[in-house]
Design a protein around this nucleic acid. Structure first.
Lengths: 146, 146
DNA sequence: AGTGCTCCTGCGAAGATTCGCAGGAGGCGA
DNA sequence: TCGCCTCCTGCGAATCTTCGCAGGAGCACT
């Protein structure tokens, strides 16, 4: 697929090695329409290439690395299992997770840009607010509705 | 200790039962000076009362329940293990976690109150931004310094 | 293209957290 | 105070994630 050079570039630009495993794992996540668990990602890799023999450890390690590199994001929902998604560069969005029904929706939030500035001013900490999981109640589960 | 009636009240007010185990677990966390892992909390319970025979499952379940009830908060740091802390009612603070050295510091952030309003206006989602873990780089690990 | 230094991988085990079940106890109503 | 309903607990197993080690492979340099 045409985006694989992009992935390769992104990994190498950040001083990491591009291995077959990383390419396949990141490509699988890149082409997923929504967030995926480690196991789902491994299934996708195997669907794409039945010869691929990648261990689950490697999936976890790749996702940890690529999250450090801001290529992907990890979200740990209330379900207790972590899900991962591809970061489209330049875009930021946050996840609203309903603690009642468990569904998530996405929003862009300009107010959080202010928070970054406020944090830096106040304590010098260089916050990275690109991807937060925010708990709450969705419209359907809110108090006005039941 | 004098705050145990408070804890009892808080649990019962929310329609849950006050068991010996919950009282001891929440009291241990209430009196800890900083966040504690499930295992550390169990150790504290045993220190306070050597006769206490509480299982780790119960610690996890109690913390899950009390987090739902907003009595406590759960933070899952980069270390991969969850830590918990007591919520002082009426106060909100957020955690800045340095992805380099792993240390955390706490801040109050007025900008995040704006975010709650922005979210509700935009999507009707009733966000609950009282306790966020925000990644980034602390002053010591920032680019100006290293 | 060959070489070597590291980083990466696969495997298995360990660690952390959740789940299912059967028995026990809290709290409401009588 | 007594009884009952239900929620809660302890145990062990299952599940999810991380770790340690030995061998393999990417990439810079020649």
């Amino acid at each position: 697929m045409s985006c694989e050079p992009e992935i390769a570039q992104a990994v190498r630009d950040r001083g990491r090695r591009l291995t077959i495993q990383r390419a396949k794992i990141l490509s699988a996540l890149r082409h997923a329409s929504d967030h995926q668990s480690a196991e789902q990602i491994l299934d996708r890799v195997r669907d794409n290439d039945p010869h691929a023999d990648i261990s689950l450890s490697t999936v976890y390690r790749t996702l940890e690395t690529s999250t450090d590199l801001h290529l992907t994001s990890e979200l740990r929902g209330a379900s207790g299992i972590s899900v991962y998604e591809w970061n489209d560069p330049g875009t930021t969005h946050h996840h609203l997770e309903c603690r009642d029904c468990g569904r998530t929706e996405e929003v862009d939030l300009s107010a959080l840009q202010l928070a970054e500035a406020e944090i830096r001013e106040r304590s010098g900490f260089q916050a990275d607010i690109r991807h937060l999981a925010i708990p709450g109640l969705c419209v359907d589960c809110g108090p006005d509705d039941g």
